[in-house]
């Protein structure tokens, strides 16, 4: 793939991600917000692919799009009486949030463009899945196991919290 197409896809994907993210935070309809989030997550997966992180792109699609988003939509549907409600907090004005975000944006931009990044020279793209597998079972074995336990705990905890208490009669 030559430079033009990579640039084209990068711009396309980032624009999709940013615009749908904007929609997520601005819309008044929860279900629509969830679907906009779908586009954002998918575009980010595409961006991972451009970054030669093939495995992560797949994981992003599988877990975020296939798992978390479905979970969120389930959540919305299970609590459906609220999805027409105004999503905005009336008391907190959008204005202050905007001010904070703009200040942070300025700071970040200064950091991003003001820093002399040590860029790596080679740009060869190589598959990363096997190396990730190796590193997870060697150098990052302990964090990996801890993460597994965390997931297990989260599953059990979620079940425990969400279960309906059976009233004893």
């Amino acid at each position: 793939m030559n430079g033009f197409w990579v640039n084209f896809f990068f711009i396309l994907l980032s624009l999709t991600a940013i615009l749908s993210a904007l929609y997520v935070v601005l819309t008044n309809n929860l279900v629509r917000a969830a679907f906009a989030l779908f586009f954002t997550l998918f575009s980010v997966a595409g961006l991972y692919a451009i970054l030669s992180a093939d495995f992560i792109a797949v994981v992003q699609v599988m877990i975020y799009v296939g798992g978390i988003l479905v979970l969120i939509i389930f959540g919305i549907l299970l609590t459906r009486t609220v999805f027409d409600m105004s999503l905005y907090d009336k008391k907190m004005s959008k204005f202050w949030a905007g001010v904070i975000v703009v200040i942070m944006a300025l700071i970040f931009l200064k950091v991003i463009f003001g820093t002399d990044w040590l860029v790596r020279s080679g740009t060869t793209i190589q598959p990363v899945t096997a190396r990730l597998g190796n590193i997870f079972l060697s150098r990052y074995l302990l964090p990996f196991e801890v993460a597994s336990v965390l997931l297990l705990v989260a599953i059990v905890g979620a079940l425990f919290i969400a279960r309906r208490e059976v009233k004893k009669r």
Binding site: I56, V59, Q60, I63, Y64, G67, I68, L71, I72, F74, G75, A147, L150, L151, V153, A154, I155, G157, A158, L159, I161, A162
Partner: peptide
């Protein structure tokens, strides 16, 4: 991503 998954599950519960 792992943390996000765990967090989403708990939060929705």
């Amino acid at each position: 991503i792992i943390l996000a998954a765990a967090e989403a599950a708990i939060a929705l519960a």
